[in-house]
Design a protein around this nucleic acid. Structure first.
Length: 190
DNA sequence: ATACCGATTAACT
DNA sequence: GTTAATCGGTATA
């Protein structure tokens, strides 16, 4: 079942990032269907989070989509090379987001391999958020797309995740964020 | 108009 | 372990 908009509009982005683990991310792009179980996420807590693009309430053309009501995608280009896929959460005006860092492929693995130009790791692709977007067909030009439409959405398959098998650790690549770089906002399924 | 740099990756040693 | 690749976003002037 497709996650409803009420899921995305909840206000605790750190809790929500954990609840996204075990859900299934789906793309229908370029005539292909790809699905994967979300196994790694990071929470970005908006205005108060030095690691967030929206820190201090910064609003720019790029970050504007983070201020939309939850249930859209924030996809941005990093290092001039990679598109990173985020789920925008919370109510309109609160720029919270969850970065999806890794999936276990379920469907469309051949398409993913074709897009990547190489074979998938048998147990899933955990190389990082940039390769995830490449495999799923996500592109930064899709930023702002609704997660309740046909192209990109997230399914709840009813799989329940015990708290015990979620590990929390500091986020990757945010050393510039000072004390906030140490927050345990990265979540993985064991 | 110009300069700096990043929520990364792959290919090296 | 180290580092080159690569370009739009952002700040500064």
């Amino acid at each position: 079942m497709k996650l409803p908009v009420s899921f995305y509009r909840r206000t605790d982005v750190v809790q929500l990032a954990q609840e996204l683990l075990g859900k299934v991310l789906v793309s229908h792009i370029g005539g292909h269907c790809c699905k994967g179980i979300i196994i790694e996420t990071e929470a970005y807590a908006g205005e108060t989070d030095r690691a967030s693009h929206a820190y201090g309430g910064r609003r720019t053309a790029r970050t504007e989509v983070m201020y939309a009501a939850g249930g859209v995608a924030y996809v941005y280009l990093i290092y001039g090379i990679h598109s990173l896929f985020n789920v925008v959460t919370n109510e309109a005006g609160v720029p919270h987001a969850v970065l999806i860092r890794a999936l276990t492929p379920l469907e469309g693995i051949d398409v993913m391999e074709q897009r990547r130009g190489k074979r998938m790791h048998p147990k899933g692709f955990t190389a990082g958020p940039g390769t995830l977007s490449q495999a799923m067909g996500f592109h930064h030009t899709q930023s702002g797309i609704r997660l309740l439409g046909r192209e990109i959405y997230i399914e709840d398959t009813g799989l329940s995740i015990a708290d015990k098998i979620i590990t929390a650790s500091p986020r990757i690549g945010v050393a510039y964020a000072g004390a906030d770089a140490l927050l345990p906002y990265r979540f993985r399924l064991l």
